[in-house]
Amino acid sequence: MKNAAFVPSESCATCPAFAQLERMGIKMDRFDHVIALAGNPNTGKSTLFNALTGLKQHTGNWPGKTVRRAEGGYQFNGVRYKLVDLPGTYSLLSTSQDEEVARNFLLFGQPDCTVIVADATALERNLNLILQILEITDKAVVAVNLIDEARRKGIEVDTRALSCDLGVPAVPIVARTGEGVMALLSSVADVIAGRLQTQPRRVCYTPQLQAALDELVPLIESLAPGLPNARWVALRLLDGDARLQQALLSGELAEIARRQHVPESRLSRQIAVVGQQ
């Protein structure tokens, strides 16, 4: 996988994988799939975004820098992807505006796959967000970024063990140099096509909370049969999430659940616009 680097200055004849990627900047009039890019702040999320789309977003070495949701496109193996860069957050449980934008896009925007960028040097902290995202969506790939920096610091990440534990692919990458990015993109393609079956890890909450969830989940499922993330919805309703309450009342959730069963309609659908001012 180390050979898969795609530094533009290098000759691409030696790396066949590079020929498969075409950066499309903001030309995204037609696209086949929508990919959400999520992750903690300061994990190299926008570096990956720029590397894939050819756009030049800047967020700096800063935790907590709010930027508007950025979108770009890339083409991989002839398939066009639209990449939506979500605000970097530590969690999805709070009421901050960034977290609402990220949370609502994952739920209502229904990306075909979510790439979760994690910092290999602080994996534990990043796993908090990863586990939360896996509650919302089972179509996800974890990109373990900054592997080079981790190596320098004497930290080795066993991505195979990580994949096993999380139930979704975990791919080591160095977004800055492009190392591993091709493998990441093919994992994304495999997950979307169903060639890779994901079985995301769901945590066990405290007995009291679990009991409350066990009561709510069947109620929600009866309203929105087939909803893949009924447990997350139940958790948010217990939290009193106003946006979800409204989605439940308006039938939006049932609509999402219905669309899950009609894959063809997903290709041409309009992306729900969330979190835009």
Partner: peptide
């Protein structure tokens, strides 16, 4: 409190 919890 929320921030502290989010940060681990």
């Amino acid at each position: 409190r929320r921030r502290l919890l989010d940060l681990g």
